[in-house]
Amino acid sequence: MRTLITLLLTLTISTTTLAQDVLPKMQIETLKGANINLEDISSNDQLVVVSLWATWCVPCKNELDAINDVYDDWVEETNVKLYAVSVDDSRTVKRVKPLVSGKGWEFDILLDTNSDLKRKLNAPTIPLTLLVKNNKILYRHSGYTPGSEDELYEKIKEFSK
C-alpha cells in the first residue's frame, strides 16, 4: 500500500509537467460507416468541439439538445464544428442513428463502439467535452449541468480568435 501511495505521489508530481493535451492518433468510424483520421478533424486551424456521449446518458443528451438549439448561431459566429462521439457499445449503437435523426441534431456523429477513444482519453465518465484545434486539446470539461453550454461558448469565442 505504501509503495502505491508513493507511486500516486510521484504521479501527481509528474502530471504537473505533462498533460493529455492532444487527441490520440487513431481512426474512427463515422455514422455513415467511413473511417476518418481523428487528427484530421481539427487540422488547418479548424476549432472543433469533441463531445463524448451515449444514447443512455441523460446529461449527455441534454447537453447536445441544448447545443443543438444554438448550434447555427455558434457556427455562424465562430465557425466552430461539433463532433459528437457516441461511446454506445454494440447493444445500443443501433439506436444512435434514429435518435440523432429523431432529435434533428445537425452535427457530425462519430462512433467509438469499443471505447477505444474513451480509454485513450482516460475518461471514466461521460459527457466529456473537449475543445480542439490542430489536434491540441485546449479545454476539457466533464459532466453537464444546464447552462454550462454558455460557459463552453465563452471558451469557443476565446479560442476561435
Binding site: 508513493t6 507511486l7 509528474s14 509537467t17 505533462l18 493529455q20 482516460n122 471514466p124
Partner: peptide
C-alpha cells in the same frame, strides 16, 4: 515510479524540441 520520473528530466529540456514520446494516463 522510476519510469514516471524519467519524463520529468526529459521534459525539463523542452528547448531541444526532441521527440521523446508522450506519456498520458488516468
Amino acid at each position: 515510479a522510476a519510469l514516471l520520473c524519467t519524463p520529468l528530466i526529459v521534459f525539463s529540456q523542452e528547448d531541444d524540441k526532441k521527440d521523446y514520446g508522450k506519456l498520458s494516463g488516468g
